[in-house]
Design a binder for these strands. Structure first.
Length: 496
RNA sequence: GCCCCCAUCGUCUAGCGGCCCAGGACGUGGCCCUCUCAAGGCCAAAACAGGGAUUCGAAUUCCCUUGGGGGCACCA
């Protein structure tokens, strides 16, 4: 609640098990905004206690994703900080120590049940239509006996001794108090038989040690919130402010994104993965703006925000607890807005890699001239290649059937091209204004419509039916090349 | 099956008892502008899941139903 005044310490704690997606991006963003707003610290902590699920390169992708978005962290694995290390795999010993402390104080116990036995217990419970849970077999083994068995090398885990009676009430900032009956909770494992701590223990220990004041995470954690609260209580540690964000649903709003749907999305030029979004031509500014509004709002009409606007305006009180369907057409909209918010120089710089990726050599000067006429007609950066590739090609190859549009005969199209060639040849200063003026006069006298004349010219000069404004384009291409291309098109018609 | 959460236009949302026969945005449709495509401008259709209760008064509070989501691992 002490938002806006006291500096917070918040952490984004992903596990390096796959690609960074929109949900992570939003959580990290809110963390960052809250930290910046309060003059606090934003920490990146890698939750890699599960060796089996580790994915090579995932941590790097996470860091790159955050940097790309502009969501910079103050402490983290690659930059260090006063509460490191920031990779849980490097903190193994710490967790074990705290787990044993819990055993000592009677809040946890050693359990010697084999995975086989547990599976059997669960199967039986399912058969009886009971909720699967640990049956408490080792709950009351005396600590001395347990120590002896461990000494003899018996495999064991450490379990939390969840109270069997009563209720646990925890407060979530968005939902208020949540109360559960303790008997519906399980004796969760804190430390595995290989000595690695599980999330429930590791995260609580780290949050405490790293002096985390607000835990912002996805609502999939809500069911284990009582456990986490109980663990904190067992240690006698103060609890952070708990903030559970709503989940993202698939665009239809029915259920969450499945593997198959992710593939389908990519076919439409969309993705929930941050690295894909970058390659698809989305601006980090737009992704930030868009994602910030899924579960948060400022007022009833303001929607365009830069990162610094968001730092200024963000507040936990305006978070919305209900699930949100991902709306990609709105991302396109925001991308357009942010593209138009870029300076010409900046836009030129951002679209250049997309040309390079398609094997098109660009030049910076020309690109700067193209940027302004491209700006309001692209929704994503990669569209600029399709729209403006012709500026950098030595040759364009207009299709004859496009050169001769419906309603015109080849002879008429030829006439337009020839007349235009004569008129444009006579233009001294080849600016779009000076070229357009005599061409307009020609349209008037020719009996053709502006659409017909300029349409033929567009195809002849750009090789495309859709392009940036004709005369601005011609100015950038230059008189010489324009005339060459007109001649080429006349030849093309003649050859038919 | 059990536990928890959520519920306003197709979608994201504003609304925190009277300002609401519900506002904005995306998308959709129409018109204007126009050399194509856009951008931009204007207009339109489009929602308080249902039922009780509280109250002079409910989208806003409470209960139930329904629907949706999440969770029930030696994963996070």
């Amino acid at each position: 609640m002490e938002n806006g005044i006291t500096p917070v310490r918040v952490r984004f704690a992903p596990s390096p098990t796959g690609h960074m997606h929109l949900g992570s991006a939003r959580t990290a963003l809110y963390d960052y905004l809250l930290a910046k707003k309060t003059g606090g610290k934003f920490i990146l902590r890698i939750e890699d206690t599960d060796q089996k699920r580790y994915v090579e390169g995932a941590e790097q992708e996470l860091i790159e994703g955050l940097r790309w978005l502009g969501v910079d962290f103050d402490e983290g694995p690659d930059i260090g900080g006063p509460f490191g290390p920031y990779r849980q795999s490097e903190r193994k010993g710490i967790y074990l120590k705290y787990a044993e402390q819990l055993v000592e104080s009677g809040h946890a116990y050693y359990c010697f049940c084999t995975p086989e036995r547990l599976t059997k217990v669960r199967e039986e419970q399912q058969r009886r239509k009971e909720a699967p849970h640990y049956d408490g077999n080792c709950r009351n083994i005396r600590i001395e006996e347990a120590r002896q068995r461990i000494e003899k090398g018996e495999k064991h885990v450490i379990r939390f001794k969840t109270p069997k009676e009563g209720t646990t009430t925890v407060k979530d900032l968005l939902r208020g108090e949540i109360t559960v009956e303790n008997r519906t909770l399980d004796d969760y494992i804190l430390v595995k038989s290989d000595g690695w701590a599980l999330y429930h223990l590791a995260a609580m220990v780290d949050d405490h040690l790293m002096k985390i004041t607000h835990v912002i995470r996805g609502s999939e954690w809500l069911p284990s919130l009582p456990l986490h609260s109980l663990i904190m209580q067992a240690f006698n540690w103060p609890e952070p402010v708990w903030v559970h964000l709503s989940v993202f649903l698939k665009p239809s709003g029915k259920g969450k994104m499945s593997k198959r749907e992710k593939d389908e999305l990519l076919k439409d030029g969309y993705s929930i993965f941050i690295k894909d979004l970058k390659d698809l031509g989305y601006l980090p500014e737009a992704v930030v703006n868009w994602v910030s509004l899924m579960g948060w709002s400022f007022d009833d009409h303001t929607e365009f925000f830069t990162l610094s606007d968001l730092i200024d305006k963000f507040s936990l009180e305006q978070l919305n607890p209900s699930p949100a369907a991902i709306n990609f057409s709105k991302l396109d909209h925001f991308n357009g807005l942010h593209i138009r918010n870029l300076t010409d120089e900046e836009l030129a710089r951002r679209i250049t890699p997309f040309f390079t990726a398609k094997g098109i050599k660009t030049d910076a000067e020309k690109m700067k001239k193209i940027a302004p006429i491209l700006k309001e007609r692209i929704a994503t950066l990669d569209e600029s290649v399709e729209m403006a590739g012709f500026f950098f090609k030595d040759k364009v190859l207009p299709a004859v059937e496009e050169l001769v549009p419906k309603g015109l005969t080849p002879a008429q199209a030829r006439e337009i091209l020839l007349e235009s060639h004569i008129i444009l040849s006579a233009v001294g200063n080849f600016s779009h204004k000076e070229a357009e003026e005599p061409m307009r006069a020609y349209v008037e006298s020719s009996g053709f419509s502006a659409g017909q004349v300029f349409g033929v010219l567009r195809v002849a000069i750009t090789g495309q039916k859709v392009s940036p404004p004709l005369f601005e384009s011609m100015e950038i291409i230059g008189k010489e090349v324009v005339l060459q291309r007109l001649q080429q098109s006349i030849r093309l018609i003649d050859q038919e």
